Amino acid sequence: MTHSIIASFQNGCIVSCQALEDEPLYGSDIMAAMAKAAEQGGAVGIRANTPADIRAIKQVTKLPVIGLYKKNYPGSDVYITPTMNEIREVIAAGADIVALDATKQARPGGVTLKQLFQQIREEYPHILILADVSVYEEGVYAMDLGADLVSTTLSGYTPYSPQQKDPDIDLVARLAALNRTPILAEGRIWTVEQCQESLQQGAYAVIIGSAITRPQEITKRFVSCIQELKPLPKG
C-alpha cells in the first residue's frame, strides 16, 4: 500500500526551499517564509536543507518535509546527507522523508550505500527514504535497496551523468517505465512546459527549486536573455 505522504505527492509540485550561506536569502526564518508561500501557492511538499531550516519550516507549514543536510567530507564527493550523523540530525529535526545521495561515488568512511540503507532501516524502520540519483543504473540500484522514492536530482552533477542545461527528462522516463518506485523529476526545471513534460513522461511529482526560490538565479536568466538581444537601431 502506498504511504499516505507519498500518495499526497502524486501529480504535484514539491518546492525546494534552500539557500546557502553566501546567498541573500540565507536564514531559517526566510526559508520558513518561503515554504509558507509555497504552501499557499499549492505545493504538496517542501524540500529543505539543514536541521535548523527543517525545524523552522515544520513550525509554519503542515506540508510534508523532505529533509537533507549538505556536508562535505574529505575524500568524498558525496555531500547530500552523506552519513548516519546527518541522517539522525535530519530525522530529529522533524523531516518526514530523508533525502540522500544514492550515486555510485565513494562515500565518507568507505561506507557503502547498501550499508547505509541497512542502518537507516534498523534505526528508523518507519522513515521514508528518497534516493537522489544521477543515472539510470543508480536509480535501479536504489530501488533494489528499497528506496521509497527516487529523484533525478543529481543528473548533471556527477562527472559521468549527462551534462546539459535542460532537465534530464529521459532519465525520468526510463526509471518511471519500470513501474517500481515513484520517480520525482528534479534538476534544472525552469518552465511550466518542462514540468508538464516531466509528468507526461511518468514523473510521480516534480521538485522545483531555483526557478521559484532563488531570485538571484531567476534575475540572472532574465538579464542574460536581455544581453543576448542585439541593440535596437536608434531613431
Results as ranks from 00 to 15, higher is better:
Pro108Asp: 07
Gly209Trp: 07
Lys71Tyr: 13
Ser198Arg: 02
Ile91Ala: 03
Ile87Lys: 13
Gly42Met: 03
Leu128Lys: 14
Gly45Leu: 02
Ser198Val: 01
Val111Tyr: 04
Gly156Arg: 10
Thr191Asp: 03
Asp29Thr: 05
Ala56Thr: 06
Glu197Arg: 10
Tyr73Ser: 05
Gly41Trp: 11
Glu197Trp: 01
Val15Trp: 06
Thr83Met: 10
Thr61Arg: 00
Ile208His: 02
Pro108Ala: 07
Gly139Gln: 08
Ile226His: 11
Ser210Ala: 14
Tyr26Pro: 02
Asp132Leu: 08
Ile54Lys: 02
Ile91Leu: 14
Val111Met: 14
Gly75Ala: 04
Gln164Lys: 15
Thr191Ser: 13
Ile189Phe: 01
Ala32Met: 02
Met143Ser: 15
Val98Cys: 10
Phe222Lys: 12
Ile30Glu: 03
Asn49Ile: 00
Gln216Ala: 14
Ala142Val: 04
Ala203Phe: 02
Pro167Leu: 05
Glu23Ser: 08
Ser151Ala: 15
Gly42Ala: 04
Tyr141Pro: 03
Asp77Asn: 12
Met143Phe: 06
Asn49Ser: 03
Ile30Asp: 00
Gln200Pro: 02
Gly12Met: 09
Asp22Ile: 08
Met34Gly: 03
Ala131Asp: 12
Cys13Gln: 12
Gly110Leu: 03
Glu137Thr: 09
Pro215Asn: 05
Ile212Lys: 11
Ile6Lys: 13
Glu228Phe: 01
Ala19Lys: 05
Leu184Asp: 09
Ala19His: 06
Glu138Met: 04
Leu149Val: 11
Gly146Glu: 10
Lys114Val: 04
Ala7Asp: 13
Pro233Arg: 04
Val98Met: 08
Glu197Tyr: 05
Ala203Met: 04
Val206Pro: 07
Pro215Gln: 06
Leu171Val: 02
Val65Tyr: 00
Val223Thr: 15
Ala19Trp: 03
Gln115Thr: 09
Arg47Lys: 13
Gln118Lys: 13
Asp29Ile: 01
Ser210Met: 11
Ala173Lys: 14
Arg55Pro: 00
Asp132Val: 09
Glu193Val: 03
Lys234Thr: 11
Trp190Phe: 09
Lys62Cys: 00
Ala32Trp: 00
Ser224Asp: 13
Arg121Ser: 06
Lys234Tyr: 06
Ala92Thr: 06
Val135Ala: 05
Pro231Ser: 05
Gln10Ala: 11
Ser151Ile: 07
Thr2Tyr: 08
Pro233Tyr: 00
Met1Val: 12
Gln118Met: 10
Ala95Val: 01
Pro167Asn: 04
Arg55His: 00
Asn49Cys: 00
Val150Gly: 09
Arg180Cys: 09
Ile189Gly: 05
Ala56Asp: 00
Phe117Gln: 05
Pro182Arg: 06
Glu138Pro: 00
Gln227Lys: 14
Ile30Phe: 08
Ile5Thr: 14
Ala142Arg: 08
Gln163Ile: 12
Glu137Leu: 08
Pro231Lys: 07
Pro233Met: 01
Leu130Ser: 13
Tyr141Phe: 14
Ser198Glu: 01
Pro159Ser: 14
Leu199Pro: 10
Tyr160Asn: 12
Gly187Ala: 09
Leu130Asn: 15
Leu68Gly: 03
Tyr204Lys: 04
Tyr204Phe: 15
Val98Trp: 07
Lys234His: 08
Tyr157Asn: 15
Phe222Gly: 11
